[in-house]
C-alpha cells in the first residue's frame, strides 16, 4: 500500500528554463517527508514531478530517473494516468468538484476508466474514506449535498477522502493548510499523522512549525538567485534539520534569518 520513492539526478524544466537541478533523494514508505524552502525554490515543482502533474503545463518536462519502488515512472511507455492513480495529490486550495455531491466527490476517482462498483461497495468506500479523512461524523447526514457547501477545512478533508478512496501508494500534499484556519489546520495535521500508517506522505509547506510537527524527515530546497535553478540543499531527520543543520543556509532559513 505504500511505496518508496527514489529520485536520481532529476532535473525539471519549464521549456528551456531549468527550474530544479540535480535532485537525489530517497523517500521512505510509511513516513511523512516535508519539503521546505523559500518561495520559488522549486519544492512544489519537484512535488508535481512525483505524480507527473508537472508535464500538464505546456513545454514542461523532466530529465533523470524517478523510481517508485524501483520502477521508473518516466520510463518510455509509462502512462501518466496510471502513475497518477497510484500517486494521489492534495492541492493548496481545496478543490472538490462543485457540481458533485459529497458522496460523488469521494467516488469520483473510482468511477474513472469505466470502472463500475455496486451501490453497497460504493457506500462502504464512501464511509471508509470519509472516516479515514476524519470527516464522516460531520457529513454523514448530508452526503447528497454539494461538496462546495462545506467549510474550507472540511473541503480540504473531503479532497483527502477523495484521494484515499482510490487507495494510492503515495499521497502528495502541496501546502494543504495554507488556505485554512488554525483549527482546520490542526485537523488536517492530525490526519497526516494517521495517514502515514498506511501511505507514503510528502508535504510541501511554508510553515516550519508544521514541518516540525508532522514530518519524520525534512528536505530543504533553496535557490541561488532569480533565474537560477532550485536545488536540494539538505535532507535529514526533521529534528536534525531544525536543531542541528549541517548547512549554513538551512540554519539561516529555519532560524528565520531569511525566507
Amino acid at each position: 500500500m505504500s511505496k518508496r520513492i527514489d529520485a536520481i539526478d532529476l532535473n525539471v524544466y519549464y521549456g528551456k528554463f531549468r527550474a530544479v537541478a540535480d535532485v537525489d533523494i530517497t523517500i521512505e514508505p510509511k513516513s511523512v517527508t516535508a519539503f521546505i524552502g523559500p518561495s520559488g525554490c522549486g519544492k512544489t515543482t519537484f512535488l508535481r514531478t512525483l505524480n507527473r502533474m508537472h508535464e500538464v503545463l505546456p513545454g514542461a518536462h523532466v530529465e533523470g530517473k524517478l523510481l517508485l519502488d524501483g520502477d521508473d515512472i518516466y520510463a518510455p511507455g509509462v502512462d501518466p494516468v496510471a502513475v497518477r492513480s497510484n500517486v494521489g495529490m492534495v492541492f493548496q486550495r481545496p478543490n472538490p468538484f462543485p457540481t458533485m455531491t459529497i458522496r460523488e466527490n469521494v467516488l469520483a476517482g473510482l468511477k474513472l476508466n469505466g470502472q463500475r462498483i455496486s451501490k453497497g461497495d460504493a457506500d462502504a468506500v464512501v464511509e471508509k474514506s470519509l472516516r479515514g479523512a476524519n470527516l464522516w461524523q460531520e457529513v454523514k447526514d448530508r452526503l447528497e449535498k454539494p461538496g462546495s457547501g462545506l467549510s474550507g477545512g472540511q473541503q480540504q478533508r473531503l479532497c483527502i477522502a477523495r484521494t484515499i478512496a482510490v487507495e494510492p501508494e503515495v499521497i502528495l500534499m502541496d501546502e494543504p493548510c495554507s488556505a485554512l484556519d488554525p483549527i482546520s489546520t490542526l485537523a488536517v495535521e492530525d490526519l497526516i499523522s494517521e495517514l502515514k500508517e498506511q501511505y507514503t506522505v510528502v508535504i510541501v509547506t511554508h510553515n516550519m512549525q508544521q514541518a516540525a510537527r508532522v514530518s519524520d524527515k525534512t528536505a530543504f530546497f533553496n535557490i541561488a538567485g532569480t533565474g537560477k535553478p532550485g536545488k536540494l540543499i539538505e535532507y535529514a531527520e526533521t529534528s536534525q534539520i531544525f536543531n542541528n543543520p549541517q548547512e549554513k543556509s538551512t540554519e539561516d532559513y529555519v532560524s528565520g534569518r531569511f525566507g
Binding site: 505524480n51 502533474m53 500538464v56 494516468v81 496510471a82 497518477r84 492513480s85 497510484n86 494521489g88 495529490m89 492541492f91 478543490n95 472538490p96 468538484f97 469520483a108 476517482g109 474513472l112 476508466n113 479532497c159 477523495r162 484521494t163 482510490v166
Partner: peptide
Amino acid sequence: EAALALGA
C-alpha cells in the same frame, strides 16, 4: 488538475 491528479 483535481481530475487529472485522480488519474483521469
